[in-house]
Design a protein around this nucleic acid. Sequence first.
DNA 1: CCGATACGGAACGGGGCCGTATCGGTGACT
DNA 2: AGTCACCGATACGGCCCCGTTCCGTATCGG
Lengths: 224, 224
Amino acid sequence: MNRAAGVSEVAADGGRPAAVVPGRRGRPRSAAADSAIIEAVLSLIEDGVSIAELSMERIAREAGVGKATVYRRWPGKNALMLDVMRSLDVPSPPAAGLSVRDDLVSLLEFLRHRGLAKRGSALLRTVVSHVRAQPELWAEYHATVIRARHEALLGVLRRGVANGEIRADHDLDTLADLFVGPMLARALLHERTDLPEGLPADLVDLVLEGVRPGVRPAAATAAG
Amino acid sequence: MNRAAGVSEVAADGGRPAAVVPGRRGRPRSAAADSAIIEAVLSLIEDGVSIAELSMERIAREAGVGKATVYRRWPGKNALMLDVMRSLDVPSPPAAGLSVRDDLVSLLEFLRHRGLAKRGSALLRTVVSHVRAQPELWAEYHATVIRARHEALLGVLRRGVANGEIRADHDLDTLADLFVGPMLARALLHERTDLPEGLPADLVDLVLEGVRPGVRPAAATAAG
DNA sequence: CCGATACGGAACGGGGCCGTATCGGTGACT
DNA sequence: AGTCACCGATACGGCCCCGTTCCGTATCGG
């Protein structure tokens, strides 16, 4: 566990089970092994095994795979974990194009399912905890996954600013946090970590309309 | 690391370096050792040592203390970490009593300093990551620290509902997340994890007034 | 067919940590 | 003065893990 995990072992190739070189001699890599290993990690974590208790040996055992087969694909646990994280990510939200409000809802809805949903939640929380605590891994994950999501959200917000649905007098990054943050808080801070069905819509409307009671017409109206 | 960390070793006494029994014979426990140990953990983490790399042996070494001295106080690493977390917590926010809006700001301001502030941030993030990943520890920490903060926030919100500053048509827990979540998002998701000075006030006003541009009595700026 | 590379399994030497025990010494009680 | 629990230090057996290397076998390209 404590053998001073190689710092740059991730940056090397960015992870990934090493695409098989086309003009390759000999027996090809088994795709089954690839997924068996990833699945083993996920399954162990889902069973409540903390990351600290995960060793390469145990992972290989659970996957029914030789240790060498794991090391042939990843240089170490960090690189493996990074791929596990990536495997939890899905390509991208479609970004429908309805009203900005609806886009926001579906973006948060996407978050609700992915990552923060019931089953995956223990899983993602555990993995994220580990990655978060390791600067190298975190930087990589941030650049890969989080930034993409953030950009998607920013896109929607920009559209909202352009068409007047979103106020223009604040930093867009801050506004983005207003939408994502409550989901995060709910998933991380409370005892029940599953996110109820209607939450995204509720949150979006609340954030849009504000917490103050004053009644608002749907669109802009000069009050006072 | 992987010796199946005793599950209930925390619940026993809830941690804490074992208050010295009054009618006690012999040499009393050294309070200096108590704090040296806690400080050692903090210092190591601040130096970027991941929790997985923290061993009781190393902690004792860093603290200039015999291993036995550590084990005399805490039954294991989990209990120790729990106390370390607690040591990061400060008694409580004063809860001033100005306008509800101002109370919210100072509550978030309190959060900004405590826990999420610059220096403590790496520290708290690391420790929290570890605790979060261990259900036993998390439950304990949640019951002790998080619940208290949440209740304080709920109190302010209730006052707001009573005097009309806060809308009454939503779950208070949800509203609470609206305020805390963005702070969390900012501290956890971004690359710069320090929270700028004016953030709490900005957030509170944004959440209160809403993200829609429609002009409101209190807010001047009308966009587009 | 042959050489190359993969596979699962097992073993290797090296190392760190766990939690306990045992030192000689120390200091606050009675 | 005497007692007794503390102190730091050191050592212990046991365990697990690391990352590599070696098997014998399987499966590809040439």
